[in-house]
């Protein structure tokens, strides 16, 4: 996200992006009430560049830059927000959809080569499998 105020033009392209995310995630993003429950309870929020509720807002406004938001990749699908959203929305599914839009273009978010051998040896299999599933296309 930029530091300066930007002007948004609401065009068909914005709506298409929203509809695409809604289709892939299966969530009705327009239902989001922007109450912020998801953000405040998120255990990762301090690692993020935009809050989860802001992520929902950016998708609603059709802002494709949200695909590059760190938030999308920090979300680890812990479902804390899912069980709390007063509108029964699943923000983790929205984050997953955004990740998938990127990954389906074969852009990986993880470089396997940087992990050192020692770490590899002791790390549980499930950690590696999960990381590769979530972060590679």
């Amino acid at each position: 996200m930029t530091d300066k105020i930007k002007k948004i033009r609401l065009t068909d392209r914005n709506v298409k992006f929203l509809e695409k995310v809604e289709e892939i995630s299966g969530e009705s993003i327009t239902l989001c009430d922007q109450c912020g429950t998801c953000s405040a309870g998120c255990p990762f929020v301090e690692e993020m560049d935009i809050t989860p509720s802001q992520l929902m807002r950016e998708v609603l406004l059709g802002q494709e830059e949200v695909l590059r938001a760190r938030t999308t990749w920090i979300c680890a699908s812990c479902f804390t927000c899912t069980v709390r959203c007063p509108r029964m929305l699943d923000v983790s599914k929205v984050a997953e959809a955004l990740r998938q839009i990127g990954l389906r273009q074969a852009i990986d978010e993880i470089d396997i080569n940087i992990i050192d051998r020692e770490e590899y040896r002791k790390m549980p299999t499930i950690a590696l499998v999960s990381a590769y599933r979530k972060l590679t296309g």
């Binding site: 922007q34 912020g36 429950t37 953000s39 405040a40 309870g41 929020v45 301090e46 809050t51 802001q54």
Partner: peptide, 12 residues
């Protein structure tokens, strides 16, 4: 209390 100020996007 843990809450997002959704207008400033800060976590309080």
């Amino acid at each position: 209390v843990l809450v997002e100020d959704t207008l400033s996007r800060e976590i309080i």
